[in-house]
Write a protein that binds this DNA or RNA. Sequence first.
DNA 1: ATGGGCGTTTGATATACCCAAATATTAAAC
DNA 2: GTTTAATATTTGGGTATATCAAACGCCCAT
Lengths: 263, 263
Amino acid sequence: MTASEGRRIQTVLKAFEIIEVLKELDSAPIRELDTHVDLSKGSLHTHLATLCESGFVTQDGDEYKLGLRFVMMGEYVRNHIPVYMAAKDEIDAFAEECGEYAHLIVEDDGHEIALYESRGDQAIATDYHIQLREDPQLLHNSSAGKAILASLPEYRVDEIIEQKGLQASTANTITDPDELKRTLETVREQGYAQNDEEEMRGIRAVGAPIRGPDGGVRGAVSVTAPTSRLSGDRFNEEIPAMVTRTANVIEINLATKDFNDRQ
Amino acid sequence: MTASEGRRIQTVLKAFEIIEVLKELDSAPIRELDTHVDLSKGSLHTHLATLCESGFVTQDGDEYKLGLRFVMMGEYVRNHIPVYMAAKDEIDAFAEECGEYAHLIVEDDGHEIALYESRGDQAIATDYHIQLREDPQLLHNSSAGKAILASLPEYRVDEIIEQKGLQASTANTITDPDELKRTLETVREQGYAQNDEEEMRGIRAVGAPIRGPDGGVRGAVSVTAPTSRLSGDRFNEEIPAMVTRTANVIEINLATKDFNDRQ
DNA sequence: ATGGGCGTTTGATATACCCAAATATTAAAC
DNA sequence: GTTTAATATTTGGGTATATCAAACGCCCAT
């Protein structure tokens, strides 16, 4: 299962490497890319011409940067994920109801990916939210991630722990496999997961899993807010009830939409 | 300027061709891709292994489909476009105020691309909106597109007309270059553009250009609604005033944020 | 004017992509 | 449980082509 065997297309990997470098640098002329990629200036130019023609890169003067094609492709991919279509409106309603950030999270290769985000009127934008949307994070230190892990078969959890590790983000992060598994057991009993400043200091969260008609987990909903606004009954009763209710509504949407899609 | 000269990396183009086919088919096993791409089954397999390893494609049983990496990349690209960051919240507020769909549109190679969309509570989802987000449309038959065209130097307008043509979408679509140019003149005088069922029957829209600190156009805001809800004074006075006001606020954000970004 | 820096083009060569065939794997049929 | 068919995956060898290095041309600064 660990994709590592077999051949790869070197040239395509090179192209993706250029894309990755362009992502790191935001924007760069050829002479700068030349110092980051092991390719001659001439070859780089041919690569960039190819990427530009395909719309994945755009040229602005002599600066190259990632193109809008990625936005379109991303939108396309997202619109074809059933759980996104089923969850979008509910997440909006939920964020408005509780006034905080609400997220739709899905798992991909042991990482968590923010598929959608809605901001309640009390929520304040932080770099944390941007980072969440742009880079895959690990599952063990977020409420949504733990909600997903708790719904995955045990062998998958072991696989993920072994492959990705349990890196600490704050002093509260769970880094011991056994402790994590005990926590996941609690999550299964409660039906929701909490994150008490385990990913970022001063930030708490509550998340609940979204299951498909077949019982398999499709993602998770979560609310994120400063600890000052997420404590006491609100952290332990009120918000957990709202999160699980929202997750349940999404599950119903998913079941009925699933039915419709088969036409 | 018409990128066509010079060499291209054939192998990378092949990889993008596979991605495009995967987009058309939604999801397909190798045997099906084999009938759509001029490549042997074996080579296809190596290509797909490469794409999977990079996260742009995921394998689900023996079906391949586009991967979540596109979502992350799209989000990244979008978050690094100044006009998006300057407009997002304003579009949300605007959609809520008028109750209809509000869009942020930018131009890319003569096409219009929906960078952001916000839905007011009266707005009803249609396939039109999904299509708008997933596929680049032409500029001449939408309000935002005409607002952008009206703000572009004339030689660019001529270029775009020549390259892309003025394809008719409905009976109301402007297909005559001279008529289009007269309309653009009106748009410049008014400061906003209207779309009277020119893109889709039963749908009207109003759009206004967003200009950067240097005077160049960075995109456009638009509202889209059924003709029944967009007529009379609302179509000719009320909404145009709101759209241009929103565009102006975004322009101010853009100017100040631009200043901040330079640190 | 002139020089240097940098993007772009070009020709030759070796790399690695591609095809075809062989092997492994899966699923179904009897 | 065995056989068969259909498909995925691997492998080796020929050849297209991605790569490099060098030359060209452009723009700006001095």
